[in-house]
Amino acid sequence: MKTQTKSNALEHLKRELEFRNYSFRTVNTYCSLMSHLAKVSSLPLETLTLSQFKDYLHKVVIEKGLSASTVNQYISAFKIVQTDVLGREWEDFKIRRPRRSKRLPIVLSIEEMERLINVNGNLKHKAIIMLAYSAGLRRNELLNLLPDHIDSKRMQVRVMQGKGKKDRYTLLSRKTLEVTPLLSK
Rank of each mutant, 00 (worst) to 15 (best):
E114S: 02
E18G: 04
A77T: 11
K6Y: 02
V85P: 01
G164A: 00
E63P: 04
K14G: 03
G164P: 15
F53L: 11
L48P: 13
I129Y: 03
L146W: 01
L123M: 14
R97S: 14
K54I: 15
P44T: 03
R139I: 15
S35T: 10
L57Y: 08
R100M: 12
S51R: 04
T26V: 05
P181W: 13
R97Y: 11
L57R: 02
I80M: 08
D55T: 09
T83Y: 04
V159C: 07
R168V: 10
D92K: 06
S42M: 10
F19R: 13
Q73F: 07
M34K: 03
M155E: 08
S101K: 00
V107G: 01
V107Q: 00
K102N: 11
A127R: 00
L50N: 13
F24R: 00
K102M: 06
S76R: 00
V159G: 06
N122T: 04
F53N: 12
T83K: 09
L108G: 03
F78L: 01
H125T: 01
L45M: 07
R139V: 15
R115N: 08
K153A: 10
E46F: 07
R139M: 10
R138H: 08
P181L: 15
R174H: 12
K102P: 01
I95V: 11
N120H: 10
V40E: 15
G164C: 06
L123V: 13
E111Q: 01
S51W: 05
T180Y: 06
S101Q: 08
I110P: 00
K59Y: 07
L37H: 06
E141L: 03
E141Y: 01
T176D: 10
M113I: 14
E18L: 14
N144Q: 06
E18I: 12
I75V: 14
L171S: 09
T29R: 00
V40L: 11
T170P: 15
L37S: 03
P105Y: 05
A127G: 11
A135C: 04
M155T: 05
C31H: 01
L104A: 01
K2A: 13
T47D: 15
A68R: 02
R174P: 15
L171I: 15
C31L: 11
D55P: 12
L50G: 08
N144C: 04
F93G: 02
F24M: 02
H36N: 12
Q156K: 07
K59F: 05
R100F: 09
D55F: 10
V81M: 05
I80E: 08
S109L: 04
H149G: 07
V119I: 07
K153H: 10
S109Q: 05
A127I: 08
W90H: 08
T170V: 14
T29Q: 02
M155G: 06
W90K: 03
M155V: 09
R96E: 15
L183V: 12
R158A: 11
T49K: 08
L171C: 06
N120M: 13
H149E: 09
L177Y: 04
L86I: 12
R100S: 09
